[in-house]
């Protein structure tokens, strides 16, 4: 059984489990599934920002911080007890494209050859890790949600603005991955 769990999980196992998070959070505490709002609560609780956007009682939303702390623990548990040493099974087209940018080690969840502390201080690393992170935080708050809040929770409750947001997430990602990222990875 443990051996089976250690294998990469197929989409038809993972997807329904993620979908079940929606009713679980509703039933255990009347909470709407969403993750990017945790970034807002971190700002409101830790940073001395005067903006009215952060003037609310973040303690009422503290469950969200406990939830993302759990996700962090889930990462530790998976890598400690459930890790699978086999390399990721990728589309050969992507493997050869990445090789052209000198990304040859695909053993981790992120390309360790660029996602490391040394590269962080190069232009390439700065764009990927710092600019990328900024866009994730800025974009998800501007859009009022991320993949969880809009694509999963929003679509589950048939909110058409969430469909608009989800399409824009995909359009932005497709443009970046196919037309801009190749230039950045070639730096």
């Amino acid at each position: 059984m443990l051996e089976l769990i250690k294998q990469p999980w197929p989409w038809y196992v993972a997807g329904p489990l993620i979908g079940l998070t929606v009713p679980i959070l509703l039933i255990i505490g009347n909470k709407a599934f969403g993750i990017s709002s945790s970034l807002k609560h971190i700002c409101a609780s830790c940073l001395p920002v005067k903006s009215s956007y952060f003037q609310y009682n973040w303690k009422e939303e503290i469950w969200n911080i406990f939830f993302v702390f759990g996700i962090f623990l889930g990462g530790i548990i998976s890598v400690t007890f459930l890790s699978n040493p086999a390399p990721i099974d990728l589309n050969p087209k992507l493997v050869s494209e990445l090789e052209s940018y000198n990304i040859t080690n695909i053993n981790n969840m992120v390309p360790m050859q660029i996602f490391n502390w040394e590269t962080l201080f190069s232009l390439k690393g700065f764009i990927l890790l710092v600019v990328g992170g900024f866009l994730v935080g800025f974009g998800t708050r501007y859009a009022e949600g991320c993949t969880s809040g809009h694509t999963i929770m929003g679509l589950s409750t048939l909110q058409w603005p969430s469909l608009v947001a989800s399409i824009c997430f995909m359009v932005g990602g497709i443009i970046m991955a196919n037309f801009i990222l190749p230039l950045i990875l070639s730096l």
């Binding site: 990017s36 866009l135 708050r141 359009v171």
Partner: peptide, 29 residues
């Protein structure tokens, strides 16, 4: 904001390979 912010997040998602949830999990790994 769902359009402009959505596009911004899409750019960031493709760069970092992560939406907010995976960021926390990645640090854990």
């Amino acid at each position: 904001g769902q359009v402009y912010g959505g596009l911004c997040f899409g750019f960031g998602w493709a760069l970092t390979g992560a939406c907010p949830g995976p960021l926390y999990a990645l640090i854990g790994t």
